[in-house]
């Protein structure tokens, strides 16, 4: 790992200032992605601004119709929270392994927008709002491509606000080695209708499956799910799975999610 100047601000303002000063500064949240990336020298920031010293960024607040999760809240804390919708807590409790869940954070995962990460699908399916130091960004506008988000330079995620769904379920077909989602599908019944988000499969990262949403709006049953209309050339094919197989898995995972919701 190349060396860097380390900063541990205790407020968001100080973090923004530190981020602006460095030639090529980077934020670090839990570090579960960034530190391995730096060890491989795929990233070599001049300055590392650690958000771990900002107490305001940690915590889960039940707002009645919604729940607001501070950006530096760990997956383990989300998984253990009774304020969080059960589908979201279950998703958090199945990310990585126990030690990764003790360090990894929701803000870090969402900001990184790894195309195989779990959280982005929950944000899209539940219609979450990403709250930053500058503004509030609807999830539908936030995830702009593989590892790309609407975040500006020096913009920092403070929290993610999730409206509570009527029902929801996330099904992940894990890569057996990495446990990342080969395909993950989050199905939610929200007050704005059925929303279905797919992670692990899209060329441009997480996306909503409009055709499946429409079919489930008319008939919320596993039989209604058909993933064959999702264009294969919009899906990722690699050594782990072909695009055709991922297209198939989207249907299987969506059907399992609907069946789980219907009980």
């Amino acid at each position: 790992m190349h060396n860097f100047d380390y900063h541990r601000p205790s407020s968001l303002d100080d973090a923004v200032a530190a981020l602006g000063k460095g030639e090529d500064a980077s934020l670090v949240a839990g570090g579960m992605t960034l530190i391995p990336t730096m060890k491989q020298r795929l990233a070599a920031p001049s300055d590392l601004v650690d958000l771990g010293g900002i107490a305001d960024l940690v915590g889960i607040k039940d707002d009645g119709d919604s729940v607001t999760i501070g950006a530096m809240t760990t997956h383990a804390a989300v998984a253990a929270s009774s304020a969080v919708p059960p589908s979201l807590a279950a998703l958090a409790g199945n990310i990585g392994d126990a030690q990764v869940r003790n360090r990894g954070t929701i803000g870090g995962s969402v900001a990184n927008n790894d195309p195989t990460a779990c959280y982005p699908s929950a944000c899209l399916a539940l219609g979450a709002t990403i709250v930053t130091n500058a503004r509030e960004i609807p999830a539908d506008d936030f995830f702009t491509g593989m590892f790309e988000t609407a975040l500006e330079e020096s913009e920092i995620i403070k929290a993610v606000r999730f409206p509570k769904p009527e029902a929801g379920n996330y099904q992940k077909f894990e890569n057996p080695a990495s446990r990342y989602a080969l395909v993950g599908v989050f199905v939610a019944k929200t007050k704005d209708g059925v929303r279905v988000a797919v992670t692990g499969a899209g060329n441009d990262g997480v996306f909503r499956a409009g055709d499946i949403e429409q079919a489930l709006s008319a008939n919320f049953s596993p039989d209604a799910v058909d993933s064959s209309s999702i264009p294969v050339d919009s899906l990722n094919g690699d050594i782990h799975a072909s695009a055709e197989y991922r297209q198939h898995l989207i249907g299987v995972m969506a059907r399992r999610a609907v069946a789980a919701i219907n009980g």
Binding site: Y6, G31, M32, I35, P36, K39, L48, A76, D97, A98, Q99, V100, N102, R103
Partner: peptide, 22 residues
């Protein structure tokens, strides 16, 4: 590479992979 867990220690009572923590 934070996969094998041989480096697990407790930080403030919680198990973490010490090869992936500065």
């Amino acid at each position: 590479t934070s996969q094998c867990g041989a480096c697990v220690v407790h930080v403030d009572g919680k198990s973490v992979k010490s090869c992936t923590l500065l």
